[in-house]
Every structure is written in C-alpha cells, then in structure tokens.
C-alpha cells in the first residue's frame, strides 16, 4: 500500500515538475522556443561544453542538469540581457541561468502544492559523464533555429 502511494505521489511531482520546467523556460527566454518530447534516460549521460547542476530537495529529491555548448548559452545570454557574454562571465551566467530556471520551476509547481527547494548552482565546465542517478528525464529546448540546450531531471531512487 505504501510503495504504490509513494510512486504515485512521486510520479505526480515529476509530471508537475516537467510542466513547471517548460513554463519556467518559456517565461525566462524571451524569444520563440520549441520543446522536444521528454525522453527517459536510464544510462550515463554525456554533457557537451558546459552545464549547471542544481540540487532539489523537498517533495522531489534529485538534481537538474542544464547543459549545452558555449555558443548556445552565449545566445541565451544575448537574448535575455542584450549583450554577448564569454569566458568566466559566461560560466557565471550559466550558473545563474540554472538558478533562474530551477527557481521559477519551483515557484510554478508551488501552485500545485508541491514544495521544492533548490541548492546553489554548481557549474561544470568541459565534457562530463553523469551516472549517479537511477533515471532521468531529458527535454531539449531549441531556439534561434539550431541552438539547443538540454534539461535533464535526474531522480533519486524511488525507495529513498
């Protein structure tokens, strides 16, 4: 009885988090964007140039990874703040972008009575392999025709 109820509430939290993430991205990036269908990841995930990790605690435990190439994040900074950003300032922007996306997602889903808190962002520079999760859900966000960033929600084991 307990386990299915737990799974059911976790599935609800995951579904609402995906919806909240999409609403957050739409609200933050002020140009037309398109979302690829969410897909399940059950093996290691390889990051491209740069990414940001945000820890989630509360009704859903896990991490959010937002990753892409430098050019894609630089384009996001340009459409959001009207300026080209590079080097260390781009790395700082990527961290703040992760903070804004996750924070706004947490705000959106608080309307569905799901309480989430987020950790300060950790920026990961360079290609990296992520394995420490049981399953993840990946969403691709495309803008300016060919710029793509991926959002991966990495969930802890359901029994934890």
């Amino acid at each position: 009885m307990g386990e299915p109820a737990l799974k059911s509430s976790q599935n609800y939290a995951v579904k609402e988090s995906i919806n909240g993430m999409m609403a957050s991205i739409k609200g933050i990036i002020p140009i037309e964007i398109s979302f690829g269908p969410p897909s399940l990841i059950q093996s290691a995930f390889h990051q491209r140039d740069i990414g940001v990790l945000i820890g989630l605690t509360g009704d859903l435990g896990g991490q959010v990874l937002i990753e892409g190439d430098l050019d894609a994040f630089s384009s996001v900074a340009e459409v959001m703040f009207g300026m080209k950003v590079e080097g260390e300032m781009l790395e700082s922007f990527v961290g703040e972008f992760g903070n804004m996306v996750s924070g706004n997602m947490a705000t959106h889903i608080s309307n569905s009575d799901i309480i989430l808190n987020i950790s300060p962002p950790t920026v990961v520079v360079g290609g990296s392999k992520f394995t420490a999760f049981e399953k993840g859900i990946k969403m691709s966000v495309t803008f300016n025709t060919d710029k793509v960033i991926n959002i991966i929600m990495m969930m802890k084991k359901e029994s934890e």
Partner: peptide, 25 residues
C-alpha cells in the same frame, strides 16, 4: 532579489523585514 518566488518564501522575507521582493529575471 531571487529566482525563488514561492508565496511562502516571499512571506518569510517580508515578515523578517524585507522592503520588497524581486523575482529573477
């Protein structure tokens, strides 16, 4: 000035004396 704009968070800040709450971006 935060990305976290949940009602509970805003209330806590205001109750502790914050003059305003700006949600990023």
């Amino acid at each position: 000035c935060s990305a976290m704009g949940q009602q509970g968070m805003v209330l806590e800040a205001i109750q502790n004396g914050a003059k305003d709450f700006i949600v990023k971006p």
